Amino acid sequence: MCQALTEVVGNRLFEASSFSETLEQLHSQRDIELVFLDLNMPGNEGLAGLTEIQSLFPDVLVVIVSAQEEPAIIQKAITLGASGFIPKSASITCISQAVTQVLDGEQWLPDNMAETIANLPPQDDVTERLAQLTPHQFKVLKMVADGLLNKQIAHELDISESTVKQHVSAVLKKLNVINRTKAGVAFKHAMGMH
């Protein structure tokens, strides 16, 4: 797959072996337009990496590259802002077509998948609601889902505890849940984390 991507994008391709390395590349190489994100990359849990990139780098396009081809996962990825999905088995022609279309501002899915996804029942409400969170709210929710307390979140993000409380209550309201535990469960379920 990497070799095929290099053929399509040429020497402008930066590789990362983990999700944290991907974020480092995005922070240091400010002109990155497109990220190919593997759902099974070390450090990337389900669709959480997609939403993190989207919240930190809103102008970067993200295409999911995966051997997992379940239509429901792909539908969630698109709902959460992915610009496309390329199966790992895709041909060079297919990858080239996807890159061109995505860089032109369009979404890209393999032909057989586009129809399947269009016929799926509508996305669950929580995924839609997650897509409405601000970058700060998303970060706070991810930390809540990881079991961190307000004090720990405040320390991690270098903000006051009262700001964390405001973010948490905004998240609960947007997700329409009554407490942190339910918010964390909803987040993990929507991200495909177990």
Rank of each mutant, 00 (worst) to 15 (best):
D124W: 00
E156H: 09
N150Y: 05
T134Q: 08
V144Q: 02
T79M: 09
G105T: 04
L157M: 15
E115M: 12
D104F: 02
L80M: 14
I153C: 05
G81K: 08
S96P: 01
Q101R: 15
T134L: 09
V126I: 14
Q101G: 03
Q107P: 00
P110S: 10
Q75P: 03
Q166K: 12
I117N: 06
I73Y: 09
P122F: 00
F138L: 15
V164S: 02
G84F: 04
D104A: 15
V171P: 01
S83G: 15
D146V: 00
E106G: 10
D124L: 02
P122T: 11
H167K: 09
D104V: 04
S96K: 11
T163Q: 12
P87D: 08
S169T: 14
P121R: 09
E161Y: 04
E156T: 14
T93P: 00
A90V: 05
Q132M: 13
K142D: 09
I117C: 01
Q132C: 11
C94N: 11
V140D: 05
L130G: 05
D146C: 07
N150D: 14
K151T: 12
F85P: 03
S96G: 11
V99P: 04
I73V: 15
D104Q: 14
G84I: 08
D125L: 11
D111E: 10
Q137L: 09
V168I: 15
A145M: 06
S162T: 15
D111F: 06
Q123N: 06
I86Q: 01
K139M: 12
Q123W: 00
E106M: 11
G84L: 04
